[in-house]
Amino acid sequence: MIDEMDFERSRTLWWALTVALGGTLGVVLYSYVGTFVFGLFIYYAARPVYRRLRLVVERPGLAAAGALFAFELPFLAVTGYLLFLAVRELERYAGAGAQVVAWVLPIPTTELERAIDSPRTYVSSFDVASLTEVISTGGDVLGPIATFVLHFSLAIALAFYLLRDGDRIANWFHDEVGHDSALSTYASLVDRDFQVVCFGNIRTVVVVALLALGVYNGLNVLAPPGLKIPIPNVLALLTGVATLVPIVVGKIVYIPTTAYLAVVAIESDPQTLWFPIVVAVVALLVLDLFPIMVVRPAFAGQSTHRGAMMFSYIFGGLLFNWYGVFLGPLLLIATIHLVRVGLSELAHGDHITAEITTAHGLGSMPRPDGDPPDETTGDTDTAAE
């Protein structure tokens, strides 16, 4: 009797410790859910590259670093290219460029124009009060940038350790739940389909950027004199990146561009207003509705119902802010496979098995033993690998 009481007391203490630590971890994840979900996205986007590197690189850490470098290098190159072109445009069109920057940042337009026209004279005119104001304004500007860099670095670190230690995590999980268990099948299906979503998002950005490149440069061929789309190549890159933003998609790029063209047309020749209208219509159809309804569901929902995937992006963005574009599809995939693997058995009181019993066409099917992994996305039958 005493031994049984000690046993129950010990189990109660361990369960209390587990609940306390699990709750604390849950609070941390909830507080930084955007960073965590973005780290998962980076992990899944870099995993195909990592698995190919592992064929030739023996050390997992080195392969993980190489995969993340391959993921970050295009991002850094595009960012540097955009900054270079932005500075060049500001130097060429000081007034208009300063107005745009002042609209985004809390810096007076006159100050920007003075700094661009004569940087040396502008700096030499500083006194203590001016320096204090500049430092204060710089803090307001650099604060959000520093926060972004911090969260981006945390997401990269999370992706690195998931890549490096994924095999051990997967082996531990399968050993605990059983390789032929329903939980193992469920996790494998979620892992595989979310891999398709993340890899599809990367391809969507590339396809939309190429479409925007053709659209903007093609429209410039038809543009009236003096009313061409400015820096079309930069806008094309921004439009591709903007597809990661739910709902907004290309609107964040082509609406300001169309408004700028309309203002120029009104000031120069109102009869050329037809061109901004054409730009708005073409951009809406090709760079907005087409990516939302066709490109993204096709690339990021190859194994999941395309209509459901489209709504997951829309409602994910509405409910969860910017990271909803990653969290929405993850929740959809997790829910779909819960229905496919276990919900019917739970509803009927049957034993839950690893068999797919319902909704066969909503997601991918378990692979027969021995089938090779998908060479397109690099996924395997292991979860969290």
Rank of each mutant, 00 (worst) to 15 (best):
F152L: 03
T121S: 08
T110I: 14
P119I: 02
L150K: 10
L150H: 14
I116F: 14
R92G: 15
E133G: 01
R88S: 11
P144K: 03
E91Y: 01
A98E: 06
L142K: 07
R114D: 10
E133S: 00
G139K: 04
T132D: 04
L131C: 02
Y93C: 06
V87N: 09
Y93P: 04
Y122N: 02
V104Y: 15
S124A: 13
D127W: 12
D117K: 13
A96C: 07
V128G: 03
I107A: 03
L131Y: 06
G143C: 00
A157L: 13
A157C: 07
E89M: 06
V87T: 10
L105F: 13
V149Y: 12
L154G: 03
L105P: 02
T110A: 15
V100Y: 15
L112Q: 08
V141C: 10
I156A: 08
V123N: 04
P144Q: 05
I116S: 02
A115K: 04
S118Q: 08
D117H: 15
Y93H: 15
S118K: 03
S153H: 04
E133Y: 02
S130C: 02
L105S: 06
L105K: 05
S118V: 06
R120L: 13
E111G: 01
L131Q: 05
Y93N: 14
E91L: 05
S118E: 12
V104P: 01
S124C: 03
A94N: 11
L131G: 03
A115G: 07
R114S: 11
T121H: 11
T132C: 00
I145M: 02
R92F: 14
G95F: 15
V87W: 14
E113I: 15
I156H: 03
P119G: 04
V104D: 07
G138C: 01
L154N: 05
G97E: 05
S130D: 14
L131T: 10
I156R: 01
S124P: 11
V101Q: 07
A86M: 07
S130G: 08
A96N: 10
W103N: 07
L112F: 03
P106A: 06
D140A: 08
V100R: 11
I156S: 05
D117P: 01
P144F: 12
F152I: 01
Y93Q: 15
A146G: 14
I107P: 07
L131I: 11
Q99P: 01
R92L: 13
V104M: 05
G97S: 09
P108Q: 04
F152S: 02
V104W: 13
A159L: 07
I135F: 11
L90W: 14
R120C: 07
V100P: 09
E89N: 10
R114T: 09
V104Q: 07
V123S: 09
V123A: 10
R88M: 06
S125R: 08
L154Y: 12
E111M: 09
I116Q: 03
E91C: 01
Y122C: 00
A115D: 12
